[in-house]
Design a protein around this nucleic acid. Structure first.
Lengths: 146, 146
DNA sequence: ATCAATCATTGGTATAATACCAAATAAGTT
DNA sequence: AACTTATTTGGTATTATACCAATGATTGAT
């Protein structure tokens, strides 16, 4: 059930990570056009990327109707959001502003392993409030999760 | 003179960063074959990459003879090494081993801005010893540099 | 219920980064 | 000078990302 146990966190490319995070934020059935608006890409680009994500099992795509995270996709997306939040919070501890941290993290987050995030999260005492949003600890290996 | 003043740190692609770091480590005139051995790429690949770096002004390349960092290239390379060391050191503060930190950092270091590194370095009190090697503070904006 | 307008997809093409192979060329060695 | 080894060139491939133009689907209005 817990797919997150054996992942590296490096499975998806930077842009695909953005797609999943947006799908989670939006929730439910999302139009590919919404994605292209949010991520500032041509609709054809989002359709193609969604097709990829669909073939890899992260989303369900019904052409002309919409996209939705699969259960696996949702778990990944939650990890991605947490990863972003943990890392942003971490950088603010070094004197970067929330905005700077967030921008910085956006550039490199997809290259940080789940293992590293788990350690960092652990070491920070599993904070629940970040600078970019709340942090959940469902997939981070925390003993006090739920 | 201090070119490092106005750089973002994001000018070079991940692989090119590796090239410059290796050239700095090796020092002097380096054969493209040495590079291809070190970085595990075909000699033709290293030649092409070096040609790029040469056209961008980071190295001087005399075909069939060798490559050498330009002054600008050397300053960049020094920044890259410091960036790696600072980030590795930072991650060890969160419970990652030296090896883990180093491996982790190797994946994302080229996406961290010089600005962020300067702040982190500042915040850590300009450490001179990292887990991947010594840290110099020539380009980090430290007042106590030199 | 059909047509027009809008939305979404497909097909083609492009770029940057990275890589390999085979062929050609230069260097070094005897 | 010939032969061997090192290096470069030219061609091609892959992955990730992107756009445009054309096609196809959906929907809202009449």
């Amino acid at each position: 059930m817990d797919i997150m146990q054996e992942i590296t966190g490096l499975e998806l490319s930077p842009k695909k990570v953005e797609y999943l995070k947006f799908l989670l934020k939006k929730g439910g059935l999302v139009k590919t056009t919404d994605i292209s608006n949010e991520l500032n890409v041509d609709p054809s680009t989002s359709t193609k990327t969604i097709t990829d994500l669909s073939e890899s099992g992260y989303v369900d795509h019904v052409p002309y109707r919409g996209v939705q995270l699969t259960e696996v996709g949702k778990q990944y997306a939650e990890f991605f959001v947490n990863r972003h939040n943990i890392l942003s919070l971490m950088l603010t501890h070094y004197g970067l502003s929330s905005e700077e941290s967030c921008a910085e993290v956006s550039r490199f987050e997809s290259f940080i392993s789940k293992n590293a995030i788990d350690r960092i999260c652990d070491s920070m005492g599993h904070p629940t409030v970040g600078v970019c949003g709340k942090i959940k600890h469902i997939s981070c290996g925390s003993l006090d999760r739920l």
